[in-house]
Structure formats: C-alpha cells, structure tokens
Design a binder for these strands. Structure first.
Lengths: 140, 140
DNA sequence: CGGTATCCAGGCCGATACTG
DNA sequence: CAGTATCGGCCTGGATACCG
C-alpha cells in the first residue's frame, strides 16, 4: 500500500477542483464522456489483453488466445475489435495462406496499459487483505 | 500521455519476470486470483464511488446517490455492500430517526482509489484521441 | 432515510457450426 | 488461421413496490 510507485495525494489533488476555481474545473459534459470511456475501458478482458500485448509485443490471434486463460474466441475477437476501434491496437492482415493477423499496441494502448499498472500492482499487493476482509465479513 | 505521474517502463518492468528468474515470477494460482480481484474491482460503479468518497470523505447513502449521476438505488446498495465486504469502505449505522448511515473509505479503499487515479487521468487526457480513433474507424 | 423484495427486459457470453 | 453467424441460458441491472 505504501509502495505504490506514485503519490496518491498528489494525484488526488491534481484531479480536484482547486479552491481558487482554477482550470481543472470539471465540465459536467466532459465528465460524463470520461465516465463512459472508463466504463468501456475498465473491462476485464481489455485489461488482460493490454497486459499480454504489453509483455509480448506483436502477437497473432491464436498466440493471444494461448496467453489468456478462459477467454472464448468470441470475446477475444470482440475485445480486440473494440480496442482497435478505440485506437488501442493495430490490426495487420498479411496476405498469406494460412492467414496471419498481427496485433500490436499503439502508443495510446501502451499509455492505457501503463495507467492500469497501478491497479495490477495494487491487486497483487492487497489480495491477502481483501481475502481477509471477506472472511471476516462473511463470518456474520 | 507523457504527463502520467509515474514511469510506465518502470512499472512494466516491475511486473515482468526478470531474465534471471527472480522472485517476482508469477505463481499461476495467485495470478488467477489477482485477475479475479481485478475483474471484481475494475467495475464502473466501484471506480466512481471510490472517486466520490475520496473527494468528499464520509457521506450518507443519499449524499452518495446525489453525487453519482445515473446510478439506481439497487446498484448503489449492491456496490457499497460489495465494497464493504472487500474491505474498501466502512459502514456506520447511527441509531437515530430518521436512520443515518455513513460510508467512508478505509485505507485499503484509499489505496485502490489512488491506483485508479492513473486511469482517470488517462481517460481525461486521451478522450479526444479515442473519439478521433472511433470516427476514423467507423468511416469504413 | 436507507434500505429489501420482486419482476422482467436486455445484453453478455459461451457453445457450436460454418467459411475464405 | 482467423474469423463470422446463430442460438440460447443466465445474469445484470432498471423499475417498482414495500418496510423498519
């Protein structure tokens, strides 16, 4: 909890409207769009694909599938397509037989992956704490 | 993208198994649990409640509802209950009429909120880029 | 006020079959 | 290999009604 690689207070402050009403004041319309974007992007498979592509670089469809346990072909296609639409990955089709399609993170995708790194680290560090909390909650 | 408050490469490296096979090697069983935890926690409403409670401190049920646009009572209750079970918030019931229930982030909740700050900042900074990517994708 | 309980429509997602 | 198409179950989540 104390080993997070950035300072929570600093970031919280950066997001907050300052007392002087400076320019990080949240335009409500933009706030809604941002919330929607997060809803779209804070998806289990998206996060995992980000992680896998970050670690391995360019991968083919089946290679990704092999790295992601439990994903169906449908969800993999769907998630990749959505990520492509959102500008997170590039999709390169090679005109060969058998077909070969390579997926690679864009800069935008990399930056989102980086943003999620904090969440991954948090989950690894605090898994035990969450499990303990659940046990004591359920024991009632 | 360049203003993220932590260094992507550093964090990516921290999560990666080193060439020397050092001890951050991912135990597959733990990896699964971590993935599940992220799936649980990377939820739209959870992220928003984290944000609201971070900004306003202790809040009552209806106060939270007023700060979160579009949430139904059911989802608010459900999300808060889940967060309480996971040790993210405390729930304090005051024995008065009308009833008064206060919610407050725990240290664990704060730490998760901090981890998500990177994602919020990313979304704000890159909203326009994503919108542009979608337009050019859809124009086909 | 701060919830439950119930109903139900819609969407998510897996399984399966098929294709260039 | 890398998909698309279709079906169907289930679960999410909104709406509504009720309660201590």
């Amino acid at each position: 909890m104390s080993t997070l690689p950035f300072d929570p207070a600093t970031i919280a402050e950066a997001r907050r409207v300052t007392a002087e009403g400076q320019q990080h004041a949240v335009d409500p319309a933009v706030e809604t769009l941002v919330t929607e974007l997060i809803g779209r992007v804070a998806d289990k498979w998206t996060m995992i694909l980000l992680e896998v592509l970050e670690e391995h670089g360019e991968l083919r469809f089946t290679q990704i599938a092999r790295h992601v346990d439990g994903i169906s072909q449908k969800m993999l296609t769907q998630t990749l397509r959505q990520m492509e639409r959102d500008g997170m990955v590039t999709r390169t089709v090679h005109a060969v037989v058998p077909p070969r399609v390579d997926y690679r993170l864009t800069d935008l995708g990399h930056s989102l992956g980086a943003a999620f790194c904090g969440v991954w680290l948090w989950a690894e560090e605090n898994l035990a704490r969450v499990q303990a909390a659940r046990e004591s909650f359920d024991a009632r």
